[in-house]
Computed example of a mutant assay.
Amino acid sequence: MATNPRELPPIDAYLAGLKDPAAKKTLGALREQLRKLLPGAVETISYGMPTFKVDGKAVGGFAFFKSHCGYYPFSGSVVPALKAQLDGYSTSKSGVTFPPDKPLPAKLVKTLVQARLAEIAARGKKPSATKKKAAAKKALITERMTDSAVKGATGRDWKGWMRALDKAGAGELNHKQLVAHLAREVESTWWQQSIAVAYEQARGKRVVGETAATGFQVGVVRTLPVSASEMWERVATQAERWLGAGATLTLEPGAGYEVPKRRGVPGVRGEVRVVKPGQRIRMTWQPEGWRKPATLQLTLVPKARGVSFHVHMEKLPDAKAREAMRKHWSTVLEDLA
């Protein structure tokens, strides 16, 4: 007797309901590959499509439409970052589409999964304000990603990598040398960097929140209940709401800006570097008293119920400035909401 699809697990029911035999075969094989790449991941339905989640974060999903299949990394930056590898495929900011009878190559699927895992690792977890300073030192990359995720992608769990690198004398290597050493075993540059940073943090060679290329950095994200276009309009025409009182801004690469000093708040100056209307602004940010400018990037990612507003800063002078900027931009996003 045929099994009622309603009695099946969510993804089994989804696949069982597909009428196109090629799509059913292709997506069934894709599911098995994701299971191997993400052992221990939770299989569920999100946004109407089969989805694999690791530590509560959606890493990859797939779906079938009238005439094509789609793969979705649940990120607005993974697909654009892999533009070269995806040449020849129909893509959008959030996914890749392909014919049911022409599955994505296994190597390409692995690259998409690794890129999403690395993105999640880089964002990390926002520390609780009530935790003590000693607890903050434990917020390493090794705690942000599961053992199963790193082992599935690289062949070793975190303890295995720590032991292997200690045995290889990695404690005596600088960051560039450490990455070169990892490249002998790890193909993905994303994972080379992630493992190198995790090792340096674990062995006290790096302060949490600091990277070799970008110094101290911080990110703040908030989903706001307005459309991406409406939020872009606010950012573009109401600079005082996010730069500060008295600020004027021309959104053109090379344009300078200045925020006047006011009581208790230093003035800020900088220069616009990149503008992608509706999506992203990259600029320098240098308050009075800072010897060198930091880099500020604002990114808008459309969501089903609003827009995800990402603020990221790099090249901050120290950990104190990082925490100050975290509080500052959290407040700014609260006000914009």
Score class of each variant (00 low, 15 high):
90 S>M: 06
84 A>K: 15
325 M>A: 12
220 V>D: 05
285 W>R: 06
1 M>G: 14
102 K>G: 01
187 E>I: 03
244 G>S: 04
97 T>L: 01
84 A>Q: 14
207 V>P: 00
256 G>N: 14
198 A>V: 00
151 K>N: 05
85 Q>I: 02
28 G>T: 09
182 L>E: 04
34 L>Y: 10
311 V>F: 12
331 T>Y: 11
206 R>T: 03
280 R>S: 12
16 A>K: 07
327 K>Y: 08
310 H>T: 08
248 T>M: 10
324 A>V: 08
186 V>T: 10
188 S>Q: 06
104 L>M: 09
84 A>M: 05
257 Y>R: 11
49 M>K: 10
137 K>Y: 13
142 T>L: 08
119 E>F: 05
90 S>W: 00
87 D>H: 10
249 L>W: 03
49 M>Y: 05
175 H>Q: 14
314 E>K: 11
323 E>L: 10
154 T>S: 10
100 P>L: 01
163 R>L: 13
214 T>S: 09
71 Y>A: 13
87 D>G: 09
297 Q>I: 11
320 K>R: 14
133 K>W: 12
71 Y>S: 06
249 L>A: 06
142 T>Q: 11
60 G>L: 13
210 E>K: 14
147 D>K: 07
257 Y>G: 07
255 A>M: 09
268 V>C: 08
312 H>M: 12
19 K>A: 15
178 L>C: 05
151 K>R: 15
222 R>Q: 13
224 L>P: 02
121 A>H: 04
287 P>A: 09
116 R>V: 08
33 Q>G: 02
126 K>T: 14
331 T>V: 09
290 W>V: 00
178 L>T: 08
282 R>T: 12
2 A>Y: 10
15 L>V: 11
323 E>R: 12
77 S>C: 00
229 S>R: 14
31 R>Y: 03
134 A>T: 14
299 T>W: 01
85 Q>P: 01
32 E>I: 06
97 T>D: 02
289 G>Q: 09
167 K>R: 15
72 Y>S: 10
1 M>E: 10
330 S>P: 03
76 G>N: 12
25 K>A: 15
51 T>I: 07
219 G>C: 00
27 L>D: 06
219 G>Y: 00
61 G>P: 03
222 R>M: 08
283 M>P: 02
